[in-house]
């Protein structure tokens, strides 16, 4: 197992290496002047474009440019992100906790609801609840995230007026926080507010979290429901379930303790990948609800040709995904004793 983890972790630098080579390589398709646009922060620089090009060695051969980039990155300098107006590393430090926050709050409804409905559907195959779950999964699973988000916003914000506007806190609380800042401990605003005993901010953030969480839950749930259902049906047909029934255990014990526990094994993999995707930044959801996380920054950087920002976002998303996939694989071995690493 140890060797397996080490081998997988060794894969991480390879991924990063290929990705960075790839992005720096893509940039070679542009002219040095276009590349220089990524470094311009003020008018003065814009007037002396050649100076910027020489300073950053943008007209040098590809390998030299890559080496320069690598040297800077090794010193913790990933460049300056125009779209966040901060160095890339600081942007990540500032924004990653918000992505983590959204992922944490989405986790329980996502996995809880998906497994609950999937189990129910599997236990009542072809009955009403099963049909309902299948229709629900087909319909929600087919609505792209950006459409689902807009539909929810139209209904709950536009029509009913019960959902708050975009962002993490309401405008009036933003002004309030300018004079009474919430001390940063975790970077996740709702948790920081809770730790500081500031209930007003806490409820405001929770209020703002509801629609993004519903969006992520409904969109990601379809897969989880169908896999749980399928796995449940398969498990219920197995011999050990019949044995459990035969020895006179109650229906509930058989279903929940014997069948569901085993049925959840494939579900765990899918849930793990979904969490990994959430942590990499839910790009579209964060953008729709103007959630100040990694994903909305990445989309912003991409639409404004903020190259250091794009690179930083892609690197972070890649690292998080590789590490999370490793965690999922290890957890899988923990919950399923049949899995062995060799």
């Amino acid at each position: 197992m140890f060797a397996f983890i080490v081998r997988r972790l060794l894969f991480l630098p390879v991924v990063i290496f290929v990705l960075t080579i790839f992005i720096v390589g893509l940039l070679q398709l542009l002219s040095p002047e276009q590349r220089a646009a990524a470094f311009i922060q003020n008018d003065n620089q814009a007037r002396n474009l050649q100076l910027v090009i020489r300073e950053h060695g943008l007209d040098k051969p590809f390998l030299v440019q890559y080496w320069n980039w690598l040297k800077a990155a090794a010193q913790g300098n990933l460049g300056f992100s125009k779209s966040s107006n901060l160095p890339v590393l600081d942007t990540i430090k500032q924004r990653f906790p918000s992505t983590l926050e959204l992922a944490l709050y989405s986790l329980i409804p996502l996995i809880g609801f998906g497994i609950w409905l999937g189990t129910l559907a599997g236990l009542n195959k072809n009955k009403f609840i099963d049909q309902f779950a299948r229709v629900f999964a087909v319909v929600t699973g087919n609505i792209p995230t950006f459409v689902m988000g807009i539909i929810l916003v139209v209904i709950f914000y536009g029509l009913l007026g019960i959902a708050p506007g975009p962002g993490q806190v309401s405008p009036e609380n933003q002004i309030y926080m300018l004079t009474n800042p919430v001390p940063t401990r975790t970077g996740m605003l709702s948790i920081d507010a809770l730790l500081a005993g500031n209930w007003v901010i806490f409820w405001d953030v929770i209020h703002h979290l509801i629609l993004p969480v519903i969006t992520l839950t409904t969109v990601l749930n379809a897969n989880l429901i169908m896999v749980t259902r399928g796995s449940m049906i398969e498990t219920l047909n197995q011999d050990f379930v019949r044995t459990a029934r035969a020895k006179g255990l109650s229906e509930r014990t058989v279903n929940i303790k014997h069948a569901r526990r085993n049925a959840l094994l494939p579900v765990a993999t899918i849930a793990g990948f979904q969490v990994a995707a959430l942590l990499g930044g839910a790009v579209i959801t964060e953008t729709i609800f103007a959630w100040p996380g990694i994903g909305s920054w990445g989309a912003d950087a991409a639409s404004r040709f903020d190259v250091p920002g794009i690179l930083g976002f892609a690197l972070l998303a890649g690292i998080v995904t590789v590490v999370m996939n490793l965690v999922v694989d290890i957890l899988y071995a923990v919950i399923d004793p049949r899995v062995r690493f060799d």
Binding site: F11, L26, G298, A299, A302, F305, A314, T321, V322
Partner: peptide, 20 residues
């Protein structure tokens, strides 16, 4: 292929279109 598949595909697509 493993490297490509280890990324969320949307992120890679965003990176490529943003630069091109």
């Amino acid at each position: 292929i493993e490297v490509i598949l280890s990324f969320p595909s949307l992120v890679l697509v965003i990176v490529i279109t943003a630069i091109l």
